[in-house]
Design a protein around this nucleic acid. Structure first.
Lengths: 208, 208
DNA sequence: CGAAAAATGGGGGCCGCCCCCCATATCATC
DNA sequence: GATGATATGGGGGGCGGCCCCCATTTTTCG
């Protein structure tokens, strides 16, 4: 009997996932968590074989939970369950070394195969996710500096404040800002915010 | 046997809800819909007793689905299932005449009571929703004009463009803009966008 | 090695946003 | 009828974002 922890803030989803594992068999749900901190605590306590992790939860985001899980229970395999469908975020997760990636819109059968595969040691990325990654125009990737500047822009900072924070001149901030707006194909801060929200770029204080 | 249609873009959630209705009994799930247009079509075809409606779906948003349902099948009772927790949006739905309101974070037992109550003709608003409405400081209500201006601001329009659209001078736009930013307690467009996203104020082209 | 990309910094000008001042007309409510 | 809220409009000043020009240094990569 392998131990499984389920972390999702929607009770309905947790229940449905428990149902899936009942069909798979040979596993025991040792804990459920409705927020990030509970998820971390549950994994520390039970050291499960598998964690099913929702990317968007209160108190601690999926990324933070994942980092702590890798730190405190490196043997635990992690399947990400996310509603975000942006190529950037999804490839970030895959590169971070998550063992499975599922979209919330995936059908239950695919979720079952994913859980089975990951429990057997394989990696499993949902077909819909592979499709998204294939269709993504990887060319327009932002540089690290542009990402930093954008994060501060969407947090409401002025160019002067951003310059002080990053220890660079206002002129350089303007340059990065123009580059990233151009790369993203937006002309207003409002449009930039829309992209930032869709791509999951908002900092933790502004999460939905 | 009363007919029920379930509309949610997450197969896992649909399956969990079907499980709840199996426990309730005496109902038949006549259709599932993964997007808004399918939901409308399904209701038109089956004229069900109950529609379980996710607020955020592709192709047609919950509000549009609800309007069409009331138009084409006025006898169909509607239970809203939403992840949004903003007081404004929730009270909008209740005022629109929806028969039940559930948050996705509600526990399955409460969902079952809600479905039962609504099927019997009562209205049911989740306790968590009542709590949110109680704790909302209703004071920060925007005027109609301020709402119009804000919608155009978060769509990326400049003050000049907004003035042209509303046939008022730039000066008046500035006045409304200052008023609404003050009422909402934000100082930057970025913060305004965060509020707009959280409160569900984005227009249909910018939905997540 | 040599070219391209990334990161840094500056000058100057235009335009939009913000904030202060001011005013008038309408409408609801007391 | 007076008061307050709403909506309308204006002048002017300051500042920040945006766009054009320019440059140097470092890093990356073929």
């Amino acid at each position: 009997m392998r131990k499984v922890v389920i972390a999702d803030d929607h009770g309905l989803v947790r229940q449905a996932i428990i149902g899936l594992f009942a069909e798979i068999g040979d596993v025991e749900i040792v804990a459920e968590a409705a927020d990030g901190l509970s998820a971390i605590a549950a994994v520390k306590q039970h050291l499960p074989s598998l964690l099913v992790l929702d990317a968007a939860m209160p108190l601690a985001r999926g990324v933070e939970v994942f980092a702590d899980v890798r730190r405190w229970s490196p043997e635990t395999r992690v399947v990400l369950l996310t509603g975000f469908t942006s190529a950037g975020l999804l490839s970030d997760w895959i590169n971070a070394g998550v063992d499975g990636v599922l979209l919330k819109s995936c059908n239950p059968e695919e979720m079952k195969s994913c859980f089975s595969s990951v429990l057997q040691g394989s990696q499993y990325v949902a077909n819909a996710v592979l499709e998204i990654l294939r269709n993504s125009d990887g060319g327009k990737s932002l540089t690290n500096r542009e990402r930093e500047v954008m994060a501060l822009v969407v947090s409401g900072n002025t160019n002067v404040e951003i310059g002080e924070r990053l220890h660079i001149s206002v002129k350089t901030v303007e340059k990065h800002r123009a580059s990233l707006m151009s790369k993203l194909g937006v002309r207003s801060v409002a449009d930039l915010m829309v992209v930032a929200v869709r791509e999951g770029w908002l900092d933790e204080h502004k999460q939905l």
